[in-house]
Amino acid sequence: MTDHLASLAEAAPRLAQGLSVTVQLTIFGALLAFAIAVVLGLMAGSSSLWLRGPARVVIEFFRGTSLVVQLFFYFFVLPQLGVDLHPMVCGVLGLGLNYGAYGAEVVRGSINSVPAGQWEATIALSLSPAQRIRRVIFPQAWALMIPSLTNLLVHLMKGTAIVSAITLADFTFHLDQLRRVTSTMFSYAAVGLIGYFVLALVLTGIMAMLETHAKHKLGQGRSLRAILSPAPTVAAPGGGAA
């Protein structure tokens, strides 16, 4: 066991590098996925067939053809078509497009769940279509979609573990290096699975904070600052917002 810990200490810088690749893929992949999800989700929820049709085709295509196939397409096929992408770009593109398509369904569903009265109110106030979405509908839909987006984010993070197949030295890649000098149990289970689990906990924690913030802005629940502040907050009499 002490041998293993010594090997771990020796491998720590490389593991940290690998973890940084995994985290970068997760963050950039998630940002791209979110941008795509919002665009496709708004299009798929639109009443115009010219927006809805193409969005549906793109969503079903990227959901239906499997993440790994898409990654290999960017990595092996695009170079043969004259497009050479850095493996990191392949990874971010693959994760972003695939999970963006899943996220689009979440965005569309959440926008649909905003009560019809809210839409009617925006029309009564003669807000422009962009203002309706940006100022009224999206903030409410955003609070609704966070739990499902959290699930997708964890899926995306777990999906990054395949990228060593496209030559990226991520966390999983360095776990195999560690396994050669320690044991399967130590490298894959103790370091690997627990490492990814902690990463997942951090991601879900951040998303929980985003949800609290989004709900507070809608007048539901306490603000993030009130919850995180070290001083105990005294509940306002009558239950008003603190």
């Binding site: 777990k158 999983t172 396994r179 689990f197």
Partner: peptide, 18 residues
């Protein structure tokens, strides 16, 4: 919960070598 929150790729590799 632990199994759900960790990558199936790492679980496959772990089980393969174990």
């Amino acid at each position: 919960h632990f199994i759900r929150m960790t990558p199936i790729v790492v679980q496959l590799l772990f089980a393969y070598y174990a």
